[in-house]
Design a protein around this nucleic acid. Structure first.
Lengths: 336, 336
DNA sequence: AATAGTAGCGAGAACGTTATCGAAACCAGA
DNA sequence: TCTGGTTTCGATAACGTTCTCGCTACTATT
């Protein structure tokens, strides 16, 4: 069974030269004549040679691998980020290892702790909504492992981070609702611990204050459609229900729209709804969902770019990058 | 900069014992006393030791890595399959490397050809809709690389494969349309080269024949919502338009529903639409989309299970596994 | 008391590659 | 002919781990 692969030795033996020469011929041309180089490359191709990355990784410290740690991939935002990461990594000849934490702090620490620094050159991470203790990441940072956070970042971030401009996005969303004539605005917020939850909440509150409006309720919960529905029931259980809701993401927005529709409340005309993400489903749902578009793909590419720069330059200063968002107006905030 | 990691040697030196003993203590308990074993494990933890997988992979042929090659992940089905793969792999202590082909045959061959057999133990692949030449996979099979296909499989499949029961699913969908009273049924099919396209087409045609009905049109195109819309325009351009469409997947079904809605044609009552996948959006769109639910998560888990079995048992017979689908009735096929 | 058996450990090779050092071969200039 | 400088290549030691063999010391058996 033991599939024997052709090694550099086999090529050397076949050509009657030393392994050192073969090794040199395989990469740079210096210190090796053009003809032997060509000879080596030809026979390597003929013998179907593939480099053994375990061996190269052993001698030169540096596998061309990066790890991506992410809560899930079964939603538009995360899967698009991964696509961006993957494409940039492949362009730069890096390979990506995928780790899903299932949004569980337990799994996250387990995965990060078991991650062998010898098997990856760097790490791209998006923390869970439960994570409050960052010691498992700190250990890696202390060991000089290049690490870049994206989307969900620890609050005092010790390394580079790439995020969308959550604050301004929230401002735009709230501003839009106000301009459409809504005045009793509530916010379906995300898990309280997350930085992006705080930023979007702050943008919402600041914009309200700017217009001398009061918040009509803020509810923290998860990111799912079901969470959106639940939040709506509690929100509309009060004496003075809102006339618009700004949702921390589109999935909660879907829940809000469906909840309203099921109760015969006209979305847009009676109650406005705006989300955050620009999930493709926001065009499909009816009424279609206004939202703040996030540059998910670019966030993936950019964070990967920053990570690779960290890996290649030994002391590249940590930076926080914030990518702009965009308001997308659809039916769910149209008044009449 | 060079982050020095603690090795097995450091532990040996610290304890005044040989590296061999440390190595043994680290994994099996045989041939090493309980006390030295405990001593080694403790100091290993204290010195923050992480195994170097390059070294282990070099000596024992076998990295604990599997590669997953997939056209994309930005849709429900694929991202869910990956989740299943990932979870099973992690349970079995395997790590997954992700490669996206962007549904391009060029990238697929490039990725597969550059895949070093020494860096992965096995391969999980879902071919692109363009792939007609399988020589790059054959090379791996010839080199005894464990390989399992899922969802989209080559037609004469030379290794194991895990798919949903496309044929029976298509039969169920068509049968359901007929039972609902539709008789002029068309099929928005997938790319012609794909096995699953053929299976679903065959299930559709066989069921029609069983009921002595004629096909009201079959159009092959891609999997996108936009493809669905395009197919509808050509289909409804003919003199005798269908009164129901069976779509090869949900995304095309969304396109069909939206296309009909925009033209004021009542979905369900006038024209029935059924999809395939059970994408979460099929519940959200209105009218909601009837569909054939695919066991995406289970397909991921199962294919990973089969692959790991291939890796571990040297000669595990290749097998084709077909997982059952399920009819989900919603509004788009309700005749009032 | 002699022998056999076993538990526990160490020395050294091996895995495939790269890096370092030096040696041979060749050439130019004196 | 000798010296010095290239160019091209080979031997060999690493990298961190596992594996094979063998050795010691202790226990059990007779």
């Amino acid at each position: 069974m033991t599939r024997r692969l052709t090694t550099i030795k086999d090529i050397a033996k076949a050509l009657g030269i030393s392994v050192a020469t073969v090794s040199r011929a395989m990469r740079d041309t210096y210190d090796v004549s053009a003809e032997t180089r060509k000879l080596v490359l030809d026979t390597a191709a003929r013998m179907n040679y593939r480099p053994n990355f375990n061996a190269t990784g052993l001698v030169k410290s540096g596998t061309h691998k990066i790890a991506v740690i992410i809560p899930a991939i079964t939603n538009y935002y995360f899967s698009t980020v991964i696509t961006g990461i993957q494409e940039y990594a492949l362009e730069q000849n890096y390979q990506v290892m995928l780790y899903l934490t299932n949004d569980s702090a337990y799994w996250e620490t387990k995965v990060v702790r078991e991650l062998s620094p010898s098997s990856v050159d760097g790490l791209l991470a998006c923390i869970t909504s439960e994570t409050t203790d960052f010691s498992h990441f700190d250990e890696l940072i202390d060991a000089d492992m290049p690490l870049v956070f994206f989307d969900r970042v620890p609050d005092p971030v010790k390394t580079s981070a790439v995020v969308q401009d959550d604050y301004t996005g929230a401002c735009m969303a709230t501003q839009h609702l106000i301009e459409q004539g809504y005045s009793k605005i509530a916010h379906l917020a995300g898990p309280p611990g997350l930085n992006l939850t705080q930023q979007r909440l702050r943008g919402y509150l600041d914009t309200l204050k700017k217009h001398n409006l009061e918040s009509h309720g803020v509810i923290h919960s998860g990111f799912s459609e079901e969470n959106g529905r639940e939040d709506m029931t509690t929100l509309f259980g009060h004496e003075s229900p809102p006339d618009a809701v700004f949702c921390v993401n589109d999935r909660k927005g879907f829940g809000a729209i469906l909840w309203l529709r099921e109760r015969g409340i006209r979305v847009g005309e009676e109650v406005g709804v705006i989300g955050f993400t620009n999930d493709p489903t926001s065009r499909i749902i009816s009424p279609s969902l206004s939202t703040i578009a996030e540059p998910a793909y670019e966030i993936g590419r950019k964070s990967c770019e920053v990570l690779i720069r960290h890996i290649q330059k030994q002391s590249y200063p940590a930076q926080e990058i914030s990518l702009p968002t965009e308001l997308v107006v659809r039916e769910s905030t149209r008044r009449r």
